[in-house]
Design a protein around this nucleic acid. Sequence first.
DNA 1: TTAAGTGCAAAATCTTTGCAAATGT
DNA 2: ACATTTGCAAAGATTTTGCACTTAA
Lengths: 139, 139
Amino acid sequence: MATTPDEVLKTHGLRSTRNRHVVLEEFSHADFALSQPELEKRLKGEMDRVTLYRILSSFEEKGILHSIVDQFGTTNYASCSSSCRAGHHKDQHIHFNCLNCRKIYCLPSNNPPVDIPAGFNAENISIIAIGLCKACNSN
Amino acid sequence: MATTPDEVLKTHGLRSTRNRHVVLEEFSHADFALSQPELEKRLKGEMDRVTLYRILSSFEEKGILHSIVDQFGTTNYASCSSSCRAGHHKDQHIHFNCLNCRKIYCLPSNNPPVDIPAGFNAENISIIAIGLCKACNSN
DNA sequence: TTAAGTGCAAAATCTTTGCAAATGT
DNA sequence: ACATTTGCAAAGATTTTGCACTTAA
């Protein structure tokens, strides 16, 4: 079921605006996570930087995107799986952060079970593999 | 074998200075990872902010500390295990990032095996459990 | 002595906030 | 019409850079 951008927005209680469509469009192309600075470059001049920040955080809040903080401390965003709901994200896959191109890939691998000591209450587990990605490896 | 601060510095090719001793002292107390902002608070007035940044990055580079980027994008530092060498860190434990007090704990758990797709070359794997820590849970 | 380390000022980033104008429903 | 969304300006926060002074070896 291919949901249209309009439907995605409506379903998540957001108005359909030109800027939001542009951002959704970018994510539909990308096969990896995008950061605000990266998106800003791609959309150079298309919209105000602040608007972009606001769109990203509303998309995350509504459950359209989930965020991954990479090894450089930058927040990156990727489309959510169907298991994400507004205000509650559950990343069930591993991310790969390339040291060279800095891209973040959502890997198909599932999280392995992780052993947490008693007393600690893990709500979510972030697993990020760090190294060289497929593209950078073959150069 | 309790290595003295002086020995730690010498072994890693760093000069023995007052500032570095102060930083090492802080880490010897801490049972969790410390960020630059946190250290700056603790060492209020003891040294320049820039010096602290430089000490932390040289300690990381030389393999005295390893860094963990937390859920808020802040870089935190913790003592390295003996398996870390200059320029090559191998975190073999899981970190726990508390949503309430924001502390990062190095858990005793070992990394589970993680399945990485062919073509990707993982140098290191960062596993961060996010939730409420032991202390914050019991309040 | 002299290379490494430090402090201060300033720059560079990245992110947030306030508010008036524009836009979607 | 009216609440949302946007753009601009400005403020905050964090981290880096340049350079002259100081210090460890």
